[in-house]
C-alpha cells in the first residue's frame, strides 16, 4: 500500500512542476511589457519602471526568476495583488471558504439525486423512469450552467419569489466571520432567521453547480450498476432467496460504487471551474468571481496565483481519489 502511495506521489511532483512552469510562463506571455501592461493606461515613469522591474525580478535571467518564483510558491508566497496590495494568498484564504461551502453543497446535491436516480434506472432498466433519467442526465450534461442559473433565477427568484437573487445572506444580517462558512457562522450567531436566509441563498447556486456532476454520477452509477447486476454472484444471491432490495443495496451496490467514487472525485475539477460561472451569476463572493474580476482588472499576480492554487487543489484531490480507489479496490493497488 505504501509503495502504491509513493508511486502515485512520484507522478504528482512532475505535474506540479509543470503547472508552476505554466503559470510562470503565462504571465511572461502577455504581449508587450508586463509592467506597462500592469500599470494600465496611466503608464509609468522610467524610474518607477526600473524599480518595479527589480521588485518583480524581471531584470534577472529567466531561470533565476523561475527559481525565485518556485521558492516563493513553496513558502506560500504568491506575490501581492496589484489592486489591493494584499498578499494573494491571504485574499485567497478569505474567499476560499465561500467556494468550498458552495462546492460541497453542490456535491451533496449531485450525489443525493444522481446516485439513487442511477441505481433505480439500472434496476428498472428499459422503463419510462430509466428513459427519463437518461434523457435528463444527457440534458444536464449538455447544460450551459450560466444560462441554467439565469433560468432558475427567472423562475424561482423573479416569478415565484421563493429564493433570493444573489449573495450569501440577506443584507439585514451582519454575521461575524468565524469559520468563513456562512451556514456555520449564521448558525453560531444565533440571530433569528439568519441561518434560514443563508440556506435560502445557497439553494439555487448549489443546484446549478451540481447539475453537471449529478448528470455524470447518474450515468456512471447506472452503467456500473447494470454491469454488476448481470454478474453471476448476483444471480446466485437471488437464487438463494435473498430479498431483492438486499441484493441490490448490499451485494450489487458495493461493487458498483467503486467506479462511481472515482467519478465523484473527478468532479472536483468540474465543481471548481463551474464555480467561476456560478459565482459570477449569483454574485457569490468566492474564488471564481475573484479570478474573473482580477482578469478584467489585469491583476496578473492574482490570476497567476489563483490558477496555481486551484490547479494544485485539483491535483491533490485527484491523488486522494486515486489512493481511496487503491484502498477500496485491491486489484488496482497491485497492478503495475
Amino acid at each position: 500500500m505504501i509503495q502504491f502511495i509513493l508511486r502515485r506521489l512520484s507522478l504528482v511532483i512532475p505535474t506540479f512542476i509543470g503547472i508552476t512552469l505554466l503559470t510562470f510562463t503565462l504571465i511572461r506571455l502577455i504581449p508587450g511589457d508586463p509592467i506597462e501592461v500592469m500599470a494600465g493606461e496611466r503608464g509609468v515613469s522610467a524610474a518607477r519602471h526600473a524599480e518595479l522591474s527589480a521588485q518583480l525580478g524581471f531584470d534577472q535571467p529567466l531561470y533565476l526568476q523561475y527559481f525565485r518564483y518556485v521558492s516563493g510558491v513553496l513558502q506560500g508566497d504568491l506575490g501581492n495583488s496589484l489592486v489591493t496590495k494584499e498578499p494573494v494568498m491571504r485574499e485567497f484564504l478569505t474567499l476560499f471558504p465561500a467556494t468550498i461551502e458552495l462546492a460541497l453543497c453542490a456535491a451533496i446535491f449531485a450525489i443525493l439525486v444522481g446516485l439513487p436516480a442511477g441505481i433505480i434506472a439500472a434496476v428498472k432498466r428499459g422503463t419510462l423512469f430509466d428513459h427519463s433519467v437518461m434523457t435528463f442526465s444527457l440534458t444536464g450534461y449538455s447544460m450551459p450552467i450560466f444560462w441554467w442559473a439565469l433560468l432558475l433565477m427567472l423562475i424561482f427568484s423573479v416569478n415565484l419569489g421563493w429564493t433570493p437573487v444573489s449573495g450569501r445572506i440577506d443584507v439585514v444580517y451582519w454575521i461575524d466571520d468565524v469559520t468563513g462558512f456562512m451556514l456555520i457562522d449564521a448558525f453560531l450567531s444565533g440571530e433569528e432567521g439568519a441561518f434560514g436566509s443563508a440556506v435560502a441563498h445557497l439553494i439555487l447556486p448549489s443546484i446549478v453547480l451540481g447539475t453537471i456532476p449529478m448528470a455524470v454520477i447518474a450515468r456512471m452509477t447506472r452503467s456500473s450498476m447494470l454491469e454488476v447486476l448481470s454478474e453471476d454472484y448476483i444471480r446466485t444471491a437471488r437464487a438463494k432467496g435473498i430479498a431483492p432490495w438486499r441484493v441490490i443495496i448490499i451485494h450489487a451496490l458495493r461493487n458498483a460504487l467503486i467506479p462511481v467514487i472515482t467519478v465523484i472525485g473527478l468532479q472536483v475539477g468540474i465543481l471548481l471551474s463551474g464555480a467561476i460561472l456560478t459565482e459570477t451569476v449569483f454574485a457569490w463572493p468566492g474564488i471564481g468571481k475573484w479570478l474573473i474580476e482580477s482578469i478584467s482588472r489585469r491583476d496578473y499576480p492574482v490570476v497567476q496565483g489563483g490558477i496555481l492554487i486551484v490547479a494544485t487543489i485539483i491535483i491533490v484531490v485527484n491523488l486522494l481519489v486515486d489512493i481511496t480507489y487503491g484502498i477500496v479496490n485491491p486489484r488496482i493497488r497491485h497492478s503495475r
Binding site: P14, T15, I19, G269, L272, S273, I307, V310, I314
Partner: peptide, 9 residues
Amino acid sequence: IMLAMPSLL
C-alpha cells in the same frame, strides 16, 4: 499536466 487543469480554467 494539461489534463490536471479543468479545461475552462
